[in-house]
Design a binder for these strands. Sequence first.
DNA 1: CAGCATCCCACAGGATACTG
DNA 2: CAGTATCCTGTGGGATGCTG
Lengths: 147, 147
Amino acid sequence: MDATAPATPHASDQGTSAQASSAEDTCSPYDVFARDCPSRGTLEHVTGRWGSLTLSAISDSTVRFNELRRRVDGVSEKMLSQTLHALERDGLVNRRSQETNPPRVDYCLTPLGHDVARRLRELFDLVEGRMPEVLAAREAYDARGGR
Amino acid sequence: MDATAPATPHASDQGTSAQASSAEDTCSPYDVFARDCPSRGTLEHVTGRWGSLTLSAISDSTVRFNELRRRVDGVSEKMLSQTLHALERDGLVNRRSQETNPPRVDYCLTPLGHDVARRLRELFDLVEGRMPEVLAAREAYDARGGR
DNA sequence: CAGCATCCCACAGGATACTG
DNA sequence: CAGTATCCTGTGGGATGCTG
């Protein structure tokens, strides 16, 4: 019942793999472009609507549940909880609860989570910094009636 | 009707901004952590389920619609079309159609799109390369009954 | 405070069919 | 080939209420 190393990364062992992008220099057998590769699921946790913001919000701090809710503006209790569970299961987030009263639970990133969060923040910075370009493009697009 | 520079990036001008993460060194007034900042929408296009894969699949090539569909394994015609429109509107993708018969339409990245795609591929490579860690974490998590 | 359970609905998104 | 249009379902995700 143990399988520290999975037999096959994804069922479609060939023919599905898209292009060279990440397969050429990465020797990893995992490919996010393949529909049924497990990496796709993890990628969706990481890039998901709340996953990316949550990871980046934790960053290198140790933070409690409600503080996190405040940081990630707009997230509901339910979704934050759900998101944290998925990230914890994937080994990106550590959860440490102290059975006190009132209860105190702290979240922080694992080393892997930290690496992921760093990439995410680079992406955020890029998007934020270049929003003027994006908005200009939108107006141009709309101005000519979406063509 | 023109507004090359938007008046205010987001309505909630203060109090909402999460932590320092991207606000401290970025002078950009845009903040993905703010619920109603336009950058949040663009981020979702970029990190969305199909958006991220599509951008990365185009990469530095010029590619046609159906070829793209094949690269992004699992995307439906409808979603790819929809995704491409959103990315084009945000100024990340260029669409050039030649009115021939049969019709030929080519998609490629804008300079901005290329920059974004590069960050995305770094993220993909990281996730793919460390899937063994992720899977091990999952098993450990499941083994102890999700605690 | 930190959450799980429940209800419920809007919308993401798949399948199918049709057009230039 | 490169789409748009329509239909229909699953589920993402908000609101509310309860527990330790």
